[in-house]
């Protein structure tokens, strides 16, 4: 190995180290801060200096945070279940049946998922008031459909399109109806795709902020992102950084764990449709 090669590989590993450090450091620092209280909070530390669980005790025992977590879980789970239920049949039709205007319909669905959400905020506000679900979880469940449904339809369609023709042909020759084909032939093959799509839609619903902020008005109906954004201290000018970081770590650790467990599938789901198009 020449000197040039050594420098090259050293430079390469330096680049790798910088990428990892930049990606991980902010969250590491949030964890560090979440274990600090009082004056320790206001001294800059690069390595852990204290292990004080009181921020976690504060966030879990006082206030509405546990309630907000339950709200988020309920909203995200219901939204995803609903979207997947509608998307399985719809994506079968879009992926496996030829009909006029299919391309246009697919483009429309993609367009809806790319919508600026603010463009429908006024109309949704009216609809939610009309349905009398303002300040309830149902307001979020209804409004989140605007991005979870097109997304799930889109990803499941690209997945189903790639399945070979033959698996369906035998069933058609046997005279199976489209409904039987979906439930007996496709659904068993779809499970992996359903898990990935569901997980991505769940993360999207869990993180949503604009609708949750606009369609709730009391602390007990807020979802987690709104609760964290509006968490305030004893006085208006004092931001409770310790408890904010504790809350942030609590809601992020499960998410990171899920993402790392399913990382291969998630990468595949994210790139489905996008790269192949």
């Amino acid at each position: 190995m020449t000197i040039m090669d050594t420098i090259k590989s050293a430079g390469f590993y330096l680049a790798v180290a910088v990428i990892v450090l930049v990606a991980v450091f902010p969250f590491y620092y949030a964890i560090l801060t979440s274990f600090e209280t009082g004056t320790a909070l206001f001294e800059v530390n690069y390595v852990p200096s204290s292990l004080d669980w009181s921020n976690y005790a504060t966030i879990l025992n006082n206030g509405t945070f546990p309630r907000n977590v339950l709200n988020s879980l309920f909203v995200a789970a219901t939204t995803v279940a609903f979207a997947l239920f509608l998307a399985v049949t719809a994506s079968y039709a879009l992926a496996r049946v030829r009909f006029r205007g299919r391309g246009l319909l697919l483009m429309t669905i993609l367009a809806v998922s790319m919508f600026p959400q603010i463009a429908v905020l006024a109309g949704l506000f009216e609809l939610i008031r009309f349905l009398n679900i303002y300040n309830t979880p149902w307001a979020m469940i209804l409004s989140y459909t605007i991005f979870t449904l097109p997304f799930t339809v889109w990803v499941l369609t690209t997945f189903m399109r790639d399945l070979p023709l033959e698996i369906e042909e035998a069933a058609i020759v046997d005279g199976a109806t489209p409904w039987v084909i979906i439930t007996k032939v496709f659904l068993p093959l779809l499970w992996p795709a359903l898990v990935t799509t569901g997980l991505l839609a769940f993360i999207g619903a869990w993180n949503e902020f604009l609708f949750a902020l606009t369609f709730t008005s009391s602390e007990t109906t807020r979802t987690v992102p709104v609760a964290i954004a509006l968490l305030s201290g004893a006085t208006q000018h004092e931001t409770p950084w310790g408890t904010i970081m504790a809350a942030s770590v609590l809601v992020t650790v499960p998410l990171i764990a899920l993402v790392l467990i399913f990382q291969r599938k998630i990468v595949a789901g994210l790139t489905a449709g996008g790269v192949k198009g």
């Binding site: 902010p26 969250f27 993360i203 993180n207 964290i228 970081m245 993402v259 990382q263």
Partner: peptide
Amino acid sequence: VRAAILIPWAIPTIVSAKMWSWMLNDQF
């Protein structure tokens, strides 16, 4: 490394905004 770079993506936007506003705090 690939797992590490997934972390910023997995963190909710609101949480990353709060994390960074603490890191970018003028005094501390």
